[in-house]
Amino acid sequence: MGVMWGPLTWRHLDAGQATELWIELIDWVDWLRDRYELSAHQIPPCWPNHPVAVEELTALMASYTAAYQALTTRDGDVVRCHDTMIVWHRLELWSCLARLADHADTTVCSPTKCAHRPPDRPTATMHSDTARAVVQSDLVTRPVESDARVLAEAVMTQLIDEDAAHTVDNGVAYDGAIWQFDRRQQLFHRLTD
């Protein structure tokens, strides 16, 4: 029997799972940067370009969730979680930011230019669509599983280009289902099976 990988293991996510995790992580990192008034030097806008930063920030988000979630006893009484919240601040938040500077090469990036550019990622010039472009380039390399409920626009475009999907009057037909595009979210959602 193989290893049961968790939903935050980037290496083993399919396109649908990775789409959902990217959405959650980008939202959480935006909140973190705003809430803790972190500078562009602490977490630069180009963090999605840095695989180490993606992994570190995913782990930080998971530990934040674990530290802040409401824990209950079998009787339903809420257990105080202040100890884990303090540990998260003392040990995890600030040490993660230090590790980003040390291991993700984010200190050489500026708010407008990324010095790190893996060969399979978009150009390093920073603008409002950079994170989206990085995410799209990651997603199109992942397999699409039959139980996916949401797909990024780039993934669906690739499926259409490969003739695995085709446009219909009310969306896109793929994998025995109709998918509709949500312009606000920039995602395709499975409607019918």
Rank of each mutant, 00 (worst) to 15 (best):
V140E: 01
P45L: 02
L91M: 04
G176A: 09
T125Q: 14
C46V: 13
D120A: 10
S146W: 00
V168R: 15
M4K: 11
C46Y: 02
D193H: 11
Y174P: 03
L191K: 14
D105Q: 12
A53G: 09
D182L: 00
A165S: 06
R184V: 11
Y174M: 11
P48F: 01
W94E: 13
L32E: 04
W47K: 02
D129M: 12
G16W: 01
C81L: 05
F188K: 05
T72D: 03
A104E: 05
A101R: 15
M85S: 09
V54D: 01
V87K: 09
S95A: 12
P111Y: 02
V54M: 12
R90E: 13
W5S: 15
V29G: 00
T130D: 15
D83Q: 14
L100T: 03
H89E: 08
Q180A: 13
P44L: 01
P7I: 10
A115T: 07
L71E: 12
P118M: 00
V144E: 04
H89A: 09
D182P: 06
P118E: 05
Y68T: 10
P119G: 07
A148K: 03
L191V: 11
V3A: 13
Q158D: 13
D163I: 08
S39H: 10
E145G: 15
L57F: 05
Y68Q: 10
A115N: 06
I160C: 15
W31L: 08
